[in-house]
Nucleic acid binder design. Structure first.
Length: 550
RNA sequence: GCGCCCAUAGCUCAGCUGGAUAGAGCAGCCGCCUUCUAAGCGGCAGGUCGCAGGUUCGACCCCUGCUGGGCGCGCCA
């Protein structure tokens, strides 16, 4: 019996009591069932009686008694106790819990998927770093978290498009081009230009592609075009090596060249949210909660930066996305007000059609001191610096295991150590132990038998592990719904890997030496297979590998 | 001045959106390898959940005000 099935049973008990006239309440759509912190409180607990007591006009314990009586008659429930103010503590029968392992095997790679976002089309935009340098550490957090979120939403039934906004229109590109030109001429970088060894590298490569570039009549334009292209290819390659690939790379230039900006402004004008002042064109965002109105077309006739955002949002909606999600760094949180106002100005619902997630800053720490210098990028710490220090798996896991709402320090020494103070190793170690049991079983001629007698899984360690595996689909759904992939990482560490390690220690699976198989051999093997499946699926959602051996 | 995020064990962080005795990992101390990976497991110790009020049967969680830290408030992009 899974938690979802148990919820249905509890809800059915409520419905039955209502039908019978014992409870005068509306049957809730969803009832909560949780794992109690204290083991004595059973396998699962629900506070539904406390919640229904007030509307029913009955004491909580009286409601609890009514529900307990009915629940005790349900299949798969061993006992129901009323505790404290009116909690229902539920214990499952051994076989009902054991069936979870079998269900994991049957579902296989799809175990953990759910239909929370079925039928929804979601556009996730993240990283979107400017092609003026290697991808910096701020963008890396979203590379890991955003990609994990994409996987979680997909696992929850959504149709997800990963999108990267290629900011190739504004003045920072000109500064980059001037920096490349200066480097090629062996001159110092301009005051407002870009520094770092990579500028010299890119300038060098452009010069190799176009040997006479400095003799051309507009060399800066050559450096701009080719330098940006090279930089962008490099960014794509680093992200690919990091396990992150985008479905759409969208060019800001396209919005300006196609007339999309003008169309977006015209649309807003028709809706009555545009006015002119001081020779510029303004969007009345204050009408929708922003703290000041925003210039859309500058007095010199050039579109302001936000006009690209207007057109880009409209374009995404016209491409059919129900939800447009944008993930930004903490230094961009000031955009939320104007973006949400813009969304409302188009007649959409902020928070539903447009969602903006803010990730706080990440520091790389070595010897207790924040890293300040990068080999290639000067004072900007890059994706390469991180991966070089601790590897892709540790990097992705370290970034994905903490809430994006909090600033994060990544201790490079701890995460590069191949010991137990490195959380990703702990989870991967559990996964390799599962693999090794299955491998050794195969060598001994045992196969995983789907018809194994799961009622023999009565050891407390087995019980705990089964309960942990049963939680997975709900963890995935919650993580997707709250946009918090770190819940999956914590679950894998604290619930699955922990329970699996304890199971390993206390429950020998394979017979020793030449001894014949024990009755528990087959069900335990099946439990290991289910555990391996959950660890693989869970790590997979974070973009981390589950090795066969370490 | 205004706004966003954060504050929980010595350190790094969870806490399932109001429930039972606040949880992990590391660091510290004590145990466990005569067969599936000891990169592990068990135990001990460690807390005024930043401070002060409020809301209610019940608050780490919600509200208000402080304190401290990070980041922002352009006709830049």
């Amino acid at each position: 019996m899974t938690p979802a099935e148990l919820k249905n049973a509890v809800r059915a008990a409520v419905a039955a009591s209502v039908d019978n006239g014992e409870l005068a309440v509306a049957v809730p759509d969803e009832v909560g069932v949780e794992r109690p912190k204290v083991k004595d409180h059973g396998d699962y607990a629900t506070n539904i009686a406390l919640q229904l007591a007030k509307p029913a006009g009955l004491p909580p314990r009286r409601v609890a008694e009514l529900l307990a009586t009915r629940l005790r008659e349900s299949d798969g429930i061993d006992s129901v106790e009323i505790a404290g103010p009116g909690f229902l503590n539920i214990r499952l029968s051994g076989d009902a819990l054991g069936q979870v392992a079998k269900q994991v095997l049957i579902a296989g790679a799809s175990y953990g998927t759910n239909d929370r976002f079925a039928g929804e089309s979601v556009n996730l935009e993240f990283v979107s770093a400017n092609p003026t340098g290697p991808i910096h550490i701020g963008g890396v957090r979203w590379a890991a978290v955003g990609d994990a979120l994409a996987r979680l939403l997909q696992a929850s039934g959504a149709k997800v498009t990963r999108e990267y906004y290629f900011n190739d229109h504004g003045g920072q590109i000109d500064r980059f081009a001037r920096s490349l030109l200066a480097a090629a001429r062996k001159e110092p970088s301009p005051e407002d230009g870009y520094g770092g060894a990579y500028v010299d590298e890119i300038a060098q490569r452009v010069t190799e592609q176009v040997p006479d570039v400095l003799e051309q009549h507009d060399p800066q334009e050559v450096f701009r075009e080719r330098g940006v292209a090279l930089m962008f290819e490099e960014i794509k390659a680093s992200l690919h090596d990091f396990g992150v690939d985008f479905d759409v790379y969208f060019h800001e230039n396209a919005l300006h060249e196609s007339g999309a900006v003008e169309r977006a402004v015209a649309r807003l004008r028709a809706l009555g949210h545009i006015y002119e002042k001081d020779g510029a064109v303004w969007l009345r965002t204050t009408e929708f909660g922003d703290d000041k109105d925003r210039v859309v077309i500058k007095s010199d006739g050039d579109p302001a930066y936000i006009s690209g955002d207007l057109a880009y949002y409209l374009d995404k909606r016209e491409r059919g996305f129900d939800r447009v999600v944008i993930m930004l760094g903490a230094d961009h949180h000031g955009y939320i007000g104007r973006m949400m106002a813009m969304c409302a100005a188009f007649g959409d619902t902020p928070g539903v059609n447009l969602e903006i997630l803010i990730g706080q800053l990440v520091n790389l720490v070595r010897d207790g001191e924040p890293l300040k210098m990068s080999k290639r990028a000067g004072t900007v710490i890059t994706l390469e610096d991180l991966v070089e220090a601790i590897g892709v798996d540790a990097a992705r896991y370290a970034l994905a295991r903490s809430s994006a709402d909090s600033q994060l320090d990544i201790d490079l020494d701890a995460w590069s150590r191949q010991t137990s103070d490195n959380p990703v190793w702990y989870v991967q170690y559990a996964a390799t132990r599962a693999a090794s049991v299955l491998r050794n079983a195969g060598d001994l001629g045992f196969t995983v038998d789907h018809d194994a007698d799961l009622s023999l899984l009565t050891h407390p360690r087995e019980n705990d592990l089964l309960l942990a595996l049963a939680e997975f689909p709900a963890v995935v759904a919650t993580a997707a719904e709250l946009r918090e992939p770190h819940r999956v990482a914590r679950y894998l560490e604290e619930k699955v890997a922990k329970s699996a390690q304890r199971f390993w220690d206390d429950c020998q699976v394979l017979p020793k030496g030449d001894a014949p198989a024990e009755p528990t051999t087959a069900p335990r093997l099946l439990l290991w297979k289910a555990t391996r499946t959950v660890l693989e699926n869970g790590l997979g959602m974070l973009g981390v590998t589950a090795p066969e051996r370490m």
